[in-house]
Design a protein around this nucleic acid. Structure first.
Lengths: 141, 141
DNA sequence: TAGATATCCGAGTGGAATACTCGGGATTCA
DNA sequence: TGAATCCCGAGTATTCCACTCGGATATCTA
């Protein structure tokens, strides 16, 4: 009942990019060091985030990564989905593959999972990177 | 971002026991067949549920399993916890091991995980086996 | 234009967890 | 007694996670 480190690392990395937003690209190495994440591993995650359209990768010297959108327009849920796939507690409430289970109509637990999915989605999609920055700034004072 | 089959199977098995509550023990085999779960595997899960005090195992011919409490007194969250451990999205918001991470005080994502944990817990602990039975009965009509 | 700095890409790997199977022992009912 | 049933521990195949590595490609700067 956990999100893996992929999601956790991803959020922390995106947080760093959000803090530096508007100040040019941040190299992977810098992000990895600030958040104590393996460089090689983070590289893979950034690839997924780039393919999801959440960050831009800028090559060459003075390159790095930057958010593709403003921090207020990137939801935490987007980051999790890009790195861990759809946010569903069990497959049978994944809208994309609704028919994996023939018992769908009579399953006593389906309603429960839907409720759980919705409540998780609500939390993750109502928080943006800008919110995380705001909260961090508040705690500092 | 999923609960494993352990939790899913567990809930479904407990649902069967809840339906038969008050009518004597139900053998593992019956539960397994009704819910299309491997007998051998389910046996392991029932062991965990028994050790958690949620079911009684009754040995011998005419034996089986029965709920140790009334369906209204068993929360879905109890079952999940017995089978999958604490309901926490990431370790650092597990109250039992709060100090695994030294960055606790400055971590920008901690608040988020707490919110997520609370919303998940709320759903799972506000639903009982009796609620599942009720819902199943409603859908039948 | 050389070379340093980066991203990009795919393959590979060790360990842990999942989802089981299997064999045999203990208990109880008929 | 013997059939039914729970109880228990060991073993196993598969999958996923977390991470490493080597090298290709692109871009800036001197």
């Amino acid at each position: 009942m956990r999100i893996s480190t992929r999601g956790g690392y991803g959020i922390r990395a995106m947080f760093e990019l959000a803090v530096a937003h508007g100040q040019g690209p941040v190299p992977l190495r810098t992000v990895a060091h600030k958040q104590a994440i393996s460089e090689n591993y983070l590289e893979q995650l950034m690839g997924a985030l780039r393919r999801a359209g959440l960050v831009n990768g800028i090559r060459g010297a003075r390159g790095g990564y930057e958010l593709a959108l403003s921090p207020a327009d990137i939801k935490v849920g987007d980051v999790i989905r890009a790195l861990e796939g759809p946010i569903v507690p069990v497959r049978c409430v994944d809208q994309n593959r609704a028919h994996d289970c023939e018992r769908v109509e009579i399953c006593p637990t389906r309603g429960l999972w839907k409720k759980l999915r919705d409540s998780m989605t609500e939390v993750l999609d109502s928080t943006t990177l800008a919110d995380l920055c705001q909260e961090a700034a508040n705690e500092e004072s």
